[in-house]
Every structure is written in structure tokens, then in C-alpha cells.
């Protein structure tokens, strides 16, 4: 893997991101609606409306004026000011939502990848066994369930019912001053949404891993391994799993790339102050600068994780390396 290759890959990534961002810029504006027509305000006068449009630069033609201005400011790192959260820079609004999303969805992905791959591997390896019947059944159910359906019963049972956890949100306002108390507070708030996101994701990973393992199990080298008199566990760990993992790498990378986008429904259900909730708010408000900021971040993340997937794939599969 030489430097030229790396540079070429990075350049490709940059071009991809630029294309996505420009496409989204146009798409957002092609949506029916406009930020100045969001709230029904009986006091609005035509003059004020015009002034408002001028304030967001919506009075100028979309192409080239608005687009050129947008590209110019984006390149210089200025993502503009939010329309919904008036007066707040987009970087600030987005920045505040990134942490909570990575904490919730990133952690959920991590747990789900480990548990889901293990569960899927066991299910596929002993197809029709107890693990498969229970695990795969539950996986299918949770995979097909919207987060609202997973989340609300969790809230009703474990939060308002048993009172073990807070119903929603990420922190208790003014609850604790010391860092340990705060960590515990966030951890307490994290349990239910994390459970919901993990359940949903485990399903996806486990179902895919299961079929990958089933496919791998039919390979000749598994017969070789059996002929070698290796234990089932060793064959699974050393021969089936590393090979079945290969098709999963791309899927995992794409999923991780989208971590940054948050889990929209999940965050809304649990009032989690992440990028998912923010995206909904920005979309409803036709907050173009905020939408652009969020999707720029998501595009960068997705493209970078795809790039990473190429490298990880190379590390895991010697055939790709040479």
C-alpha cells in the first residue's frame, strides 16, 4: 500500500464528499417549503418577510449566487448560522449534538457488533439449534421492530413503572457537580436508549453474520479443518469466523459511518439530544445551513469509514492486499 495509492484514495474521497454536499445543497432547496414559511405568524408583514429572506440569502438566485456563496464559505470552514437556532453558528449547534450521538449510537454499535456477530456466528454454525431458534427468532423480531415499538415499552416498564431509570433525556439538570456523579447520571440515562439501539442493531448484525457463516460452513477448507480433527469451537474461531467476517466488514463500515447521523427515531423517542433529533428539527424548519452542516459531517464520516473499510478489508483478507 503505497503513498500514491493513499493519495489517490483520499482525493477520490474528497471529490465524493464535494459531489454529495453540492447535490444535497440543491436537493434541500428543491424540497417544497422554505424556512420563512415554517411558522404561521399572523404578524408577519410582506416587508419583514422580504427582510427575513434577505437575511438568509434566499432572495438571491439559487444558482450561481447562493451556491457560490455556499461553496466559498464551506471551503473556508464557515458553515454559517442556523436558521432555527437563530444566532447560533452551525458548527456550535452540530458540535453539541455529536457527542451524545457517538456516545449512544457508537456504544450501541460496538456492543451490537460484538454480541451480534457472536450470536449470528453461533446461530449459523449450529443451524436449527437452540441458540439459532431463540437468537435468530429474537433477532428477526427486533430487527423488524421500529425503535418506537422497542423504546416505549422500555420507558413504560423500566422508567415510569419500576422507576429504575430516567424516562428520557441525557442528563438531570443541575443534578450533580462532581464528575463521578455526572458520569453516573449520564450512564443512568443511557441504559434504556442503549438497550433499544443495541437490540435493534444486534438483529441486523446477527442475521447477516448467520448467513455469512452458513455460506462459509459449506466451504472446502471447513471440511479440511474437520478432517484435521479440530474441535468445533476451534473450526468456528479459526476458520469459519475470520472468513465469514470478510463480507461483514463493508457492512460494519457503512453502519459505523452512519453512526454520526444518529438513530433518528431512537433519539426522538428518548429525547436524546443527538444529531438524529437535530436533523428532524432542521428538516422541519428547512434550516438549510444546519442541514448542510449535518450532512457534510455525515458524508465525511461515511466516506471516511468506507475508506477505512478498504484498509481493514486489506488487513483481514490477504487476497486483497497483493
Amino acid at each position: 500500500m503505497n503513498v500514491a495509492y493513499l493519495v489517490r484514495k483520499l482525493a477520490q474521497a474528497l471529490v465524493t464528499i464535494a459531489a454529495i454536499v453540492i447535490l444535497l445543497f440543491v436537493l434541500f432547496r428543491a424540497m417544497p417549503g422554505s424556512p420563512d414559511r415554517v411558522s404561521k405568524n399572523p404578524n408577519m408583514t410582506p416587508a419583514m418577510q422580504a427582510a427575513e429572506r434577505a437575511r438568509w440569502g434566499l432572495d438571491k438566485p439559487l444558482v450561481p449566487d447562493q451556491l457560490v456563496a455556499f461553496i466559498g464559505s464551506t471551503v473556508t470552514g464557515d458553515l454559517g448560522t442556523s436558521i432555527k437556532f437563530r444566532g447560533q453558528p452551525v458548527t456550535e449547534v452540530v458540535g453539541a449534538a455529536v457527542g451524545p450521538t457517538i456516545l449512544l449510537v457508537g456504544l450501541g454499535e460496538a456492543i451490537a457488533i460484538i454480541v451480534g456477530l457472536a450470536l449470528g456466528a453461533l446461530s449459523g454454525w449450529r443451524r436449527g439449534g437452540l441458540v439459532d431458534r431463540l437468537g435468530n427468532g429474537a433477532s428477526l423480531v427486533f430487527y423488524s421492530m421500529p425503535y418506537f415499538v422497542i423504546g416505549m415499552p422500555l420507558i413504560m416498564v423500566f422508567a415510569s413503572g419500576l422507576g429504575w431509570f430516567p424516562t428520557s433525556g441525557m442528563t438531570t439538570p443541575g443534578a450533580s457537580a462532581d464528575p463521578v456523579g455526572q458520569v453516573l447520571d449520564v450512564a443512568g440515562h443511557l441504559v434504556l436508549p442503549l438497550t433499544a439501539v443495541t437490540l435493534g442493531l444486534i438483529g441486523a448484525y446477527s442475521i447477516l453474520m448467520r448467513s455469512a457463516i452458513i455460506e462459509t460452513r459449506a466451504e472446502d477448507y471447513i471440511t479440511t479443518a474437520r478432517a484435521k480433527g479440530l474441535t468445533d469451537a476451534r473450526i468456528l474461531r479459526h476458520h469459519a469466523f475470520p472468513n465469514a467476517l470478510l463480507p461483514m466488514v463493508t457492512f460494519i463500515a457503512i453502519n459505523l459511518g452512519y453512526v454520526i447521523a444518529g438513530a433518528i427515531t431512537l433519539e426522538v423517542v428518548f429525547s436524546w439530544p443527538g444529531l438524529g433529533t437535530l436533523t428532524v428539527a432542521a428538516l422541519n424548519a428547512r434550516d438549510y445551513p444546519l442541514l448542510q452542516g449535518i450532512f457534510l459531517l455525515v458524508s465525511v464520516s461515511v466516506v471516511m469509514f468506507n475508506l477505512l473499510a478498504d484498509f481493514v478489508y486489506g488487513a483481514l483478507d490477504p487476497r486483497v492486499r497483493s
Binding site: D220, Y221, T223, T224, K228, H239, P242, L246, D317
Partner: peptide, 15 residues
């Protein structure tokens, strides 16, 4: 022990 046909498939490609 065994020697299989087409060792490409009979050998673990990632080991």
C-alpha cells in the same frame, strides 16, 4: 488424513 482436489478452496484463504 486427506489431500483434497483444488487446494485453493481446501486451504483457508486467510491463513
Amino acid at each position: 488424513s486427506m489431500v483434497f482436489q483444488g487446494a485453493m478452496n481446501a486451504l483457508n484463504p486467510v491463513q
